[in-house]
Design a binder for these strands. Structure first.
Ligand SMILES: NC(=O)c1ccc[n+]([C@@H]2O[C@H](COP(=O)([O-])OP(=O)(O)OC[C@H]3O[C@@H](n4cnc5c(N)ncnc54)[C@H](O)[C@@H]3O)[C@@H](O)[C@H]2O)c1
Ligand SMILES: NC(=O)c1ccc[n+]([C@@H]2O[C@H](COP(=O)([O-])OP(=O)(O)OC[C@H]3O[C@@H](n4cnc5c(N)ncnc54)[C@H](O)[C@@H]3O)[C@@H](O)[C@H]2O)c1
Lengths: 210, 210
DNA sequence: AAAGTAATGTCATAAGATTCACAAATGCCC
DNA sequence: GGGCATTTGTGAATCTTATGACATTACTTT
């Protein structure tokens, strides 16, 4: 495969294009131009073509892209042709919301285990999953070939959970705790930080006063 | 004020530095170097200094930065010296989690209204807020000087809610629905897209197989 | 079948962000 | 008080990403 380095922003946009295309497909639209995609997701047409060009030629000049084909390509690129099993640690407010989030399923993600250390939560059900004690995590990871873990525990506990995940052999972590995690190089981490986006808004609004 | 354009990535990092500094302060640490911050949040020391340099000179050569002062500066830059009132539309799984999220409060955000159109939800309480019908949104916005709204409704309804928010005079929207919103230029929008981060991970893991 | 229109793919260019490297400033030790 | 160690602030260099422009290809119309 391409050794070429792909900008992470490109991957971000591909994910967005991919879901936009699925909506078009559901509406019965069969062909789409880079301009249509651009307008639908709020980028420039050149950007759309450039992003796709990293991975091949998927369109027809003078015509555009076949929606179903392009969905297949983007899904393939993003590594979503095969389903992914996930584990979630933290069965609190956010963890519960994420476990019941339907769109994950649509994109091929299945949460196969939810873990917590609070005895009052263990044994309870979220969606159709029983909350399990942390001790069971390595077993669930092994049994279900899980490679990705989600952290939804308080910041204080996040590093400890990351360590447990690494030890259990997970290769990637999606972290919702507002703290930077220390993990070995072979483990990919991405943080989702909700306050940051809010503070970009306040920064911009505050500027207006000036 | 500076007319200079600041990279959004800089604002993102400032928000992260700011919260990291608050943790240091809580631990009683009074002085910090760009290298310490860099290590704590996972960027380069030069990056930290450059980011701060957009806004002024906050450190002392040979010494570093005073933690409490730097917190004050970052908070000021991010527009957080004064508290912000927010409204939330969508009292579902995610909306409820967000309303009860404590860290928002710590950063000076107060959710003053939660709205939904589901009659079974209206009147219920989330944290200490009663869920209100959408019709009440303009009033709550006016009464509380709200400038920022959060959208946590299904994608299908998000544009409609954005329109209502714009009409009510909101100037910024934080959108959790996985769809791109159409709003006038004077309204700032930022999307929080959880699937994207997950798909960056799958992209990277899928690459490894190659 | 030729001309006109549409839209891709890509190379060149521009813009933007990060890193480097070092002079300048500070505090500390002897 | 002079030298040494430290760490900032910043201009220049580098690296990365986005935009612009257009040749190329395909379809459509007459
Ligand atoms: N709630 C939100 O809207 C929101 C938004 C952004 C970020 N976050 C972040 O997500 C994380 C979770 O937030 P939340 O609101 O769901 O908190 P929460 O308190 O509702 O849930 C945290 C859960 O983690 C469990 N937990 C704590 N320590 C643990 C450990 N060592 N091992 C296993 N489980 C443990 C707790 O028992 C609890 O069930 C926090 O880091 C928070 O900052 C939350
Ligand atoms: N749950 C998650 O973890 C999660 C994660 C990422 C993104 N999201 C996105 O956040 C949004 C909300 O997700 P959720 O899981 O909370 O869904 P949900 O179905 O639990 O809640 C949605 C709420 O919006 C309300 N609603 C629907 N239409 C409305 C309208 N026109 N006006 C006012 N209220 C309306 C519903 O009554 C419901 O209470 C969705 O767009 C979803 O894609 C959710």
């Amino acid at each position: 495969m391409k050794a070429l380095k792909i900008p992470e922003a490109t991957i971000t946009r591909l994910s967005i294009y991919s879901r936009f295309l699925k909506r078009l497909d559901k509406k019965g639209i069969t062909t789409v131009s880079s301009g249509d995609i651009a307008e639908g997701v709020g980028v420039s047409p050149a950007q759309v073509r450039k992003d796709l060009a990293y991975f091949g030629e998927f369109g027809t000049r003078g015509v555009g892209y076949n929606v179903k084909d392009l969905i297949r390509y983007t899904v393939k690129i993003l590594g979503l042709s095969e389903p992914w099993n996930l584990v979630m640690v933290g069965a609190g407010n956010l963890g519960s919301a994420l476990v019941t989030y339907r769109e994950f399923k649509d994109r091929g993600f299945t949460i196969v285990g939810v873990f917590d250390n609070d005895l009052t939560k263990i044994g309870k059900r979220i969606a159709d999953l029983e909350v399990l004690p942390l001790e069971d995590l390595p077993r669930v990871v092994k049994e279900n070939n899980v490679r990705i873990g989600i952290i939804a525990v308080p910041a204080k506990a996040a590093q400890e959970i990351a360590d447990i995940m690494v030890k259990a052999g997970l290769e990637a972590i999606l972290n919702f705790a507002p703290i930077s995690l220390n993990v070995p190089d072979h483990v990919e981490v991405r943080n989702v930080d909700l306050s940051v986006k809010l503070e970009i808004l306040t920064f911009n609004l505050a500027l207006r006063e000036k």
